[in-house]
Every structure is written in C-alpha cells, then in structure tokens.
C-alpha cells in the first residue's frame, strides 16, 4: 500500500476569479477514516470546495497540503453529480483508470472482476455504459472510483439526479466504502441524507467555512444563525 495521504490540511485556502472571491480563507483538516458532509445553501461554494480538494483546480491563495507531501496524490477519486461514463462497455470503463496507473493487464482483470462482483455489475459487464439507467450509471461511477483504491473519495451531490430507491443503494455503498476505511468527503443538499451519512459537518456560507462540528452536535445545536436558518428550512420542506 502506498503512503497515507491523509490528513489533508487546508491552510487559508481561497479561490478567486478576477476580483470575485468564490471561496476564501478556508482552514480545515480532513482526517483519515471519517465521513465529512460539506453543507450549505446553493452557491455557497460546496462543489468548488470539492474540486479544490481533489486537485481539479488549484487554489489562488493559501495552501492544500497532503500528508504524503505530493501535490496531487493518486489515491483519491471523485464521483460527480452527473458522472461522465466513456462511450464504451462497463468493463472498459472500469479498465480505463486502472490502465492509466500502469497496472499490469492481469492485475487489472482481477481487479475488474472483483469490482463487478462487489457492485453487482456482472450481468451488465459488456453493455454500453451510456445505455444504463441513471442509477446504474451512478453505481458504475462509484464502482470505477472504488476500483482505483482511493484513500479518500469525494462525492459531489451523487444522488441529486436519482430516484429514492437508487439513492438508497448509493447511500448504502457510501457507507460500505467508509467501513472499508475510505475517507468520505461529500456534498449534499438533502438533509435527510446528510443526517444518515455524516460523522462530521463543514458548513459553508458565501464562500466561507463558518461552522465545523461533529454531526451529532451540528444537527442538534448549530452554532451560527446561518446554519440554524439552513436547518430550519429543512423543516419547511
């Protein structure tokens, strides 16, 4: 196994486009083995926060420091709200990132077989990924992420486009990932989901991290007025 990349330490991380600061002054340590929910209203900067952590973009101020000292460790993966599956078979989609790491063909075959098995994708192994249902596509995206053997998995609203039954399946998988020791960093606007999955919560408001708490504390007794209002909004729904 490769060196531990967590904790991930963010020091006064910010991201600005021209004069507009989209995220500012985020100082946060993401420890290994936890499930962190990133919450906040639309436009609070949740997705941007995940992209910065994952290294899809670089902060314009502050620092993002991985424990292994590398700029962007390989042992991480991300599942997007709308996953992009390649126009190929399910198997080829699983094979793609593994081949990129230079993994030998035999090992890849073994890994793919394990993944198909674990995620119940065996029956559709040779089907075109793009022709799967939304829930199946997201399941494949999770499987692809899992096959990359990440230490940390970022999920950006992974179930917002799915129906309740598909959502439940995905949530179960995320919980299993966590049991396997994979650190979870996830955004969601679904409060029920946040309650079910969160161990820790980071609450963003207008591009700033204004509250960081244990889930049990956050949902019972939020410290900021904005978080209280956000949670109260949930009751109206």
């Amino acid at each position: 196994m490769t060196a531990a990349i967590l904790p991930l330490e963010l020091r006064a991380m910010g991201y600005a486009v021209g004069a507009a600061a989209l995220l500012s002054d985020i100082t946060l340590t993401i420890p290994a083995g936890r499930r962190l929910m990133v919450m906040g209203a639309n436009g609070a900067g949740k997705s941007l926060f995940l992209r910065l952590c994952h290294g899809l973009i670089d902060p314009t101020s502050g620092q993002r420091i991985w424990a292994d000292g590398s700029a962007r460790p390989a042992a991480q993966a991300m599942v997007f709200q709308r996953p992009v599956l390649l126009r190929r078979s399910v198997v080829a989609n699983l094979d793609y990132p593994l081949a990129l790491t230079g993994m030998a063909a035999q090992e890849r075959r073994f890994m793919i077989a394990r993944t198909l098995d674990r995620f119940g994708l065996k029956d559709m192994a040779d089907r075109p990924a793009r022709l799967l249902s939304g829930g199946q596509q997201q399941r494949l995206a999770l499987a692809r992420a899992w096959a990359m053997r990440p230490q940390v998995l970022f999920l950006d609203e992974p179930t917002s486009a799915l129906d309740p039954s598909a959502t439940r399946i995905i949530e179960k998988m995320v919980a299993q990932f966590s049991e396997d020791g994979i650190t979870i960093v996830m955004t969601t606007h679904n409060l029920g989901q946040a309650r079910r999955l969160a161990q820790d919560v980071a609450f963003l408001h207008s591009g700033r991290l204004i509250e960081r708490a244990r889930a049990a504390d956050f949902f019972v007794e939020p410290q900021t007025a904005q978080a209280r209002a956000f949670l109260a909004g949930d009751l109206i729904w």
């Binding site: 992209r51 994952h54 899809l56 390989a74 993966a77 991300m78 997007f80 996953p83 992009v84 793609y96 990132p97 990129l100 790491t101 692809r144 990359m148």
Partner: peptide, 11 residues
C-alpha cells in the same frame, strides 16, 4: 464534457 472526469481519473 469530459475534462473534469478525465483529470479526476488521472488522464
């Protein structure tokens, strides 16, 4: 469409 996903996958 693919940029972020491919970068995420390591390409």
């Amino acid at each position: 469409e693919y940029r972020e996903q491919l970068l995420s996958l390591g390409a």
